[in-house]
Amino acid sequence: MSKKILEIQNIKREFRMGTETVRALKGVSFDVNSGEFVTIMGSSGSGKTTLLNILGCLDKPTDGKYLLDGVNIGGLERNELARLRNIKIGFVFQSYNLLPRTSALENVELPLLYNPGIPAKERRERAVHALESVKLAERLNHTPNQLSGGQQQRVAIARALVNEPVMILADEATGNLDSRTSYEIMALMQELNQQQGKTIVFVTHEADIAAFSGRTVTLKDGKVIKDCQNDNKRSAKEVLSSLPVSDDY
């Protein structure tokens, strides 16, 4: 039995809007083990983003218990949460969120700048290494507007990887990409998961993207309605090679 990276028990999240209360999460519980590739599925408004924000320590649950890598998040204050986000979590967003007019390398270096005790030389080496692992070694000095959407998302993934987090959280990371580029991103995710043993929690509402993961948690109206292992997990690499050849990638 491998180590539990995250444990959530009966997580609730309520938003107060004037007199109304929106109950976005109504008691969600599950664990994620080290090395797992989990997708969170669900229709729009089912609470996926709300859940992911809590898992990523950007938000705190109204109620319930959350252990990240054995640490109880409930008792921590703002600055400690920021530190956890920095060293334990790598975020990937739907809209990349790269700094404009800033090279890929500098974008990837960014999390390391908030991590004291990493000397400049090591910072650079690690950023280059992370970009190599997303196959962008040739694009170090390109700025986001000189990169395609898929390449920008790979820079964002490199940025998520650079601090060697225990887990990567992705919210609709393929949402802005065409299906071919989406498969490329999923192939990269599978590679990171299988070869480097990275734990990945990936939010999507597309079933064919979820099919690349090992396990799918399905939310509906703020509750888990299905949580099952994927028996016929697909390989994104194979899907890619079966697509008509194009000279990109």
């Binding site: 990523g56 950007l58 703002r78 600055n79 920021a82 530190r83 986000r85 920095n86 060293i87 975020f91 967003f93 969120n97 700094l99 960014l110 999390p111 908030y114 991590n115 940025r159 601090n163």
Partner: peptide
Amino acid sequence: EIGLRMAIGARGID
């Protein structure tokens, strides 16, 4: 940009 910096670990004081 500020939101992103916070998400990747910048504290308020940073």
